[in-house]
Write a protein that binds this DNA or RNA. Structure first.
Lengths: 209, 209
DNA sequence: GTCTATATTAAGATAGAC
DNA sequence: GTCTATCTTAATATAGAC
């Protein structure tokens, strides 16, 4: 059995809350760009405008900061899928999900890259959350989509792979942002408007029965 | 100006060639799973069955191994797109490209993750190749696809985003393999057959005029 | 060409003053 | 709560024997 990592200190005073937020935001910057092992406490401390020992006053270790970030953000990350409404108009619901998810890539690219780094490296710290709450949510929504397919409201598609494809296509614009921008350099200074049109067409055609 | 990293030693004897290959293969294992900074020479040496100083007899530094890997593999990585034939039947050509690219994710997931790690972290070591040979190839093939669209052989789509979507959808099955398998655990032990069917349908519908 | 031993630096974490 | 100084370990790289 592995011991669970030491839990982060519970915030009490106002100043503690503020500093913890500052640290987590700086850590998100650093971890999302360099991965866990590629990031140093020095970088995070500098980004947060605090000293290294002061970081470790608020969090017991570098690992604890990373774990805290991942678990805090997991919830936000799943919100767009949670909002998929079984009672809504099927195709509109899925297209809205695509739009919300692309919006996350545009507005929260750091979060996307944080998760991408973690999963790419075998998801050592969020395996449990993936097999647990993430899988449960996906299975639940896949069942909804299967129902829509079955009654002919949308085309027949494998619902799990449909969800994967939405993740892949939208997160690509955050995770591979550098590459996308380098390739489009002389064409689109902001790839997102075109991406939105393209993905709308793609999923509209895919889902039309 | 940055000095360019020292070039790797040119192989001369048979044993040198063999050892360099062993080292690069081991390094691919390690770098693709842990990223550059997350990997250590110890890990690579152990995986290669050589001592650490022996590694540094063949390559001047850890960085040199990484650079050599990336530049050796870039070519292989672009082969499927190079094979897209302007004289072929348009939809069939694109669907074949998708199939080849998905095959790369299945057969060479380490290479996919090596590039994903690199790009995710800002592509510090392959920026030039992206703006150069990669962009040139993409622009060239995008022009081919634009021609196919214009003459009505396939539907009207943004060719650059079409190429991005093929990358995103196929590489997802290599880069996020852990997540895909954890979620499909009780359904598909091998995600690739379903992925191939799903992607074939998706691109067929997207491209039909 | 390959190894053991080691120099050198970087990074996570702690001690203890204020 | 915050800082300076420091301990400790791990990692890149080198020296030098064989």
């Amino acid at each position: 059995m592995n011991a669970s990592p030491p839990a982060a200190k519970k915030p009490r005073t106002r100043i503690q809350k503020k500093n913890r937020k500052t640290i987590l935001d700086a850590a998100l910057d650093v971890f999302s760009q360099n991965g866990f092992r590629g990031s140093t406490l020095d970088q995070i401390a500098r980004a947060a405008g605090l000293s290294k020992p002061n970081l470790l006053y608020y969090f017991p270790s570098k690992e604890a900061i990373h774990v805290e970030l991942l678990s805090c953000l997991m919830d936000t990350w799943l919100d767009p899928l949670r909002a998929l409404d079984p009672a809504g108009e099927p195709k509109r619901e899925i297209l809205s999900y695509v739009r919300r998810k692309l919006g996350m890539s545009r507005d929260y690219p750091r979060e996307s890259r944080l998760f991408a780094n973690e999963i790419l490296q075998g998801a050592p710290r969020i395996r449990k959350a993936i097999r647990g709450e993430l899988k449960d949510l996906v299975d639940e929504k896949a069942e909804v989509i299967r129902g829509w397919s079955a009654r002919g409201a949308i085309a027949r598609v494998n619902p799990h792979h449909l969800i994967f494809s939405i993740w892949a296509l939208t997160q690509h614009y955050a995770d591979f942002d550098v590459q996308v921008r380098l390739i489009l350099e002389d064409r689109e200074s902001d790839p997102f408007p075109e991406a939105e049109r393209y993905l709308e067409t793609l999923f509209d055609k895919l889902l039309t029965p």
